[in-house]
Design a protein around this nucleic acid. Sequence first.
DNA 1: ATAATTCCTATCGGATTGATGGAGATTGAA
DNA 2: TTCAATCTCCATCAATCCGATAGGAATTAT
Lengths: 150, 150
Amino acid sequence: MLTQRAKYGLRAMCILAADTTGRPTLPIHELAERGHIPQKFLEAILLDLRRHGFLTSRRGKAGGYALARAAAEIPVSEVIRALDGPLAPIPCASLTAYQPCTDCPDPPSCEIRALMRQVRDATARILDGTSLAQLAAEGETPEESAKENA
Amino acid sequence: MLTQRAKYGLRAMCILAADTTGRPTLPIHELAERGHIPQKFLEAILLDLRRHGFLTSRRGKAGGYALARAAAEIPVSEVIRALDGPLAPIPCASLTAYQPCTDCPDPPSCEIRALMRQVRDATARILDGTSLAQLAAEGETPEESAKENA
DNA sequence: ATAATTCCTATCGGATTGATGGAGATTGAA
DNA sequence: TTCAATCTCCATCAATCCGATAGGAATTAT
């Protein structure tokens, strides 16, 4: 599951990536407002993203947040890993955070693990291959919007 | 996340699918033992799977559980949906259980939703395309086992 | 100084998850 | 008929996670 946390974090970073105002930073209250995100909650999320090196910040009046790197250099997968943890549906199928099941007699021969590894790989392929820049741009290219809904 | 619940359920169904003893049913205690699953917990899971139509059961002495359909006719995706809910990482990206985010101004143009829809589709492609029979057989074909681990 | 802002820690209620206990109901066999 | 094995059902529990908020300290431009 993508938590609210990760969803809010991505949304805020998209706003930063798509910002055209030319201002060096955007304050939390503006990100919260534009992203429909509870401000206090967003505060904690942005702090976390800064500690992970995705954002830079300025304190004091006229302070705020900005992306630490170019949006094209930030894979969505990294942001999600930072906020929600490993992509794999089960720890024994994770590459970046492998943890064997305590109840599994032999992980290498576990059928469920092999299948979940496939799911993980497919997910990682998509999310590693999508940068924040692409994500932020997606809203502007309404190609897919036709075959959407329910 | 794949919960313990779904993992245990799949594992038990694999044992049923792979069973060669010729017995019409297997009792819970045997499934629990062979699958390293807490028996009482498994009890609740099997009951749930039965209610969803995946299993049949017999009470009384020499009773137990059996698959209600051929293993080849049971997609893994359905079992997971029954035990864990929708496959999509976020409800607004689900086909079978669509729910819009309350904080999203316009789902059709939501970039995050579009991306998560891709993840959902990739996941569904794998899990819809894998039957319980295939899952149960996977352990016996050790092709993939070489490039495994960590 | 003052106002605007980030930073930090603590906390909270609610839901979910994994798991267990115990009391029936049913069945086959001795 | 009795008994043991088995599924059925309901209730409950502790731990964890999740979303969110409170309150204050530090920093900075004006």
